[in-house]
């Protein structure tokens, strides 16, 4: 028998933006329907996965997360090269944790040097993520943006407190800003409007909704993203019609349920498999809520998500 499935009245589309430059640039966005609902609209560009590289050797990581990067964790350029050559990374996200003023407080110059070295080692698009300290990030990301002005970076998190400086930097060098707000659709909208008023071109903005890991606030991020997509696609809200990036890896891998060895809590099962699935389930949920770029860590979780995406966007 015939069944009547009503169509969603879409009135808007997500902007297409190009990240990086040259042969390996990637285009994300362009959706005209809710995520993967291809019977109703289009998703011309599949979601992309950026692999993480840290500017200092990680401490306290689960063994499973270190093992794929054995031998390169103290060399960001070699680490990035392994991600691209061995694990087929579409993009690299450099996490500048050592610049944290409450931590190692590395200088903007050393951060710029790190990014420059990574940029020389790989030619995929680069995301450069600060320490989430708004003043320090302003200095660090400005210098990084200037030093790597030939690479069309994504820089973030760009927040209400530093959007003027970093927005101006992005305009000057053609970089993309990851406009970051704390899991709130109204603040998200407001920051995008402020960036537009400042003159940041619409194809140089990507939304960072702030990502919660599985069991640690994922549901808040999930619902804010669904609301952002709903407003963008069905209410013609052009201040929300941007692709979305989710920096999920640090959130997933820092929680105790991932760090607990199986011997300590046998019910949680194999620690590596558990970590991989915690990351994959977080990534899958975020994709279904509208993520266009995922920042991920474990190559096995990435493989699983690639397979799933191939099934969703044939």
């Amino acid at each position: 028998m015939a069944v009547d499935i009503p169509k969603v009245a879409y009135s808007g589309a997500i902007r297409e933006i190009r990240l990086g430059d040259g042969e390996n640039a990637v285009t994300v966005g362009g959706e005209t329907s809710y995520p993967f609902e291809l019977f109703d609209g289009e998703m011309p560009n599949p979601p992309r996965i950026a692999m993480e590289v840290y500017d200092a050797a990680p401490e306290g990581w689960a063994e499973a997360a270190l093992e794929p990067f054995a031998g390169v964790t103290d060399d960001p350029a070699a680490w990035a090269k392994r991600c691209v050559d061995d694990y087929g990374a579409d993009m690299i996200c450099i996490q500048l944790v050592s610049t944290d003023p409450n931590g190692a407080d590395a200088s903007p110059e050393s951060a710029a040097e790190t990014v420059k070295n990574v940029a020389a080692a790989v030619d995929v698009p680069l995301i450069v993520w600060g320490s989430e300290s708004e003043e320090k990030d302003t200095e660090v990301l400005r210098l990084v943006a200037e030093t790597c002005q030939d690479r069309k970076l994504v820089i973030g998190p760009v927040v209400e407190g530093n959007y003027r400086q970093l927005g101006a930097t992005a305009i000057a060098y053609g970089h993309t800003v990851a406009a970051s707000t704390p899991i709130d659709i109204n603040l998200c909208k407001q920051l995008n409007i402020l960036l537009a008023d400042l003159g940041v071109p619409a194809d140089q903005i990507i939304i960072d909704p702030t990502t919660g890991g599985l069991g640690y606030g994922l549901e808040y991020t999930y619902s804010v993203m669904e609301r952002v997509r709903m407003a963008a696609l069905t209410q013609q809200d052009d201040s929300l019609q941007f692709p979305i990036v989710c920096n999920l890896a640090p959130e997933v891998w820092k929680v105790k349920e991932v760090k607990t060895p199986e011997a300590e809590d046998p019910k949680l099962g194999d620690q590596k498999k558990r970590g991989v699935l915690m990351e994959a389930a977080t990534a899958m949920s975020l994709l279904l809520a509208g993520a266009d770029v995922l920042v991920m860590r474990h190559p096995d979780a990435i493989d699983q998500i690639r397979t799933a995406v191939d099934g969703l966007v044939p």
Binding site: L214, G215, L218, E219, Y222, S223, E257, E262, P266, K267, L268, G269, D270, Q271, K273, R274, L277, M278, A280, A281, S285
Partner: peptide, 20 residues
Amino acid sequence: FDGATLFPLLLERLSIFTDP
């Protein structure tokens, strides 16, 4: 399933079905 597959799925289910 084992703990490593079931636990993440149960956490996700809890997240999705909790009162927003």
